[in-house]
Amino acid sequence: MYQVSYAVAGRTRRKPYQTEAGAKRAILRWLQQHQSSEGCRAILYSPDEAPLSFSDASELDEVASQQVNFYSSQAWLNLRRQVFERDNNRCACCGASPAHDPNTVLHVDHIKPRSSHPELALDIDNLQILCAACNLGKSNLSQRKWRE
């Protein structure tokens, strides 16, 4: 379990994260939101390492580039195509399809989210097609497998 302590304007809060990558992504977003705040700092506490302190989003550029690189990687793009073919371009939850409604937007969803299960990021059995509405409603809180 990873913990991050966020401090700004004399207020501090602490939040747990399951993975180091998830904690670093959260720190990056938080620092970007508070970049104009004087004295903002995030400290990452990990089980096996000394605490790391961050006060500027540029210190976490590597995390952001890893996120972008995953979704533009050839491995992801090939797997994504395979999932669309396997699931016939249809939402596993509600059945929506661009064939019936051209405004339908489909996403490839990680059933178990990448943030907490990075080892399953490229596992085709952990992927399903969801329309935008179903995917946004699911977020990363549910691990429901809709496809049969």
Rank of each mutant, 00 (worst) to 15 (best):
S65K: 05
F54Q: 08
A57V: 00
F54R: 00
S73Y: 02
F84G: 00
N78I: 11
N78S: 14
Q66I: 07
A92W: 01
V83T: 04
E85M: 08
A57T: 04
F54E: 01
N69L: 15
F84K: 05
A99H: 01
L60W: 01
L77T: 05
S65D: 13
F54V: 06
R81Y: 15
H100F: 15
V63M: 04
R90E: 02
S73P: 06
N69F: 13
A99R: 02
L60M: 03
S55C: 12
V68D: 13
E59S: 05
S65M: 06
S72K: 12
V105A: 10
L106C: 01
H100N: 14
A96W: 02
L106F: 09
Q74K: 08
R80M: 05
H100C: 15
V63S: 05
L79M: 12
S53Q: 07
L60E: 00
S55T: 15
R86L: 10
A57M: 14
D56G: 02
E85D: 11
V83R: 00
E59F: 12
A92G: 09
F70A: 04
H107W: 08
H100G: 10
N78R: 06
E62P: 11
S73V: 03
V63T: 03
A75F: 02
G95L: 14
T104M: 05
D61T: 05
P98E: 04
Q82S: 08
L77H: 04
S58C: 14
D56C: 07
L106R: 01
A92L: 00
A99S: 05
A75P: 09
E85Y: 01
S65A: 08
Y71R: 02
E62T: 15
S97D: 04
V105Y: 11
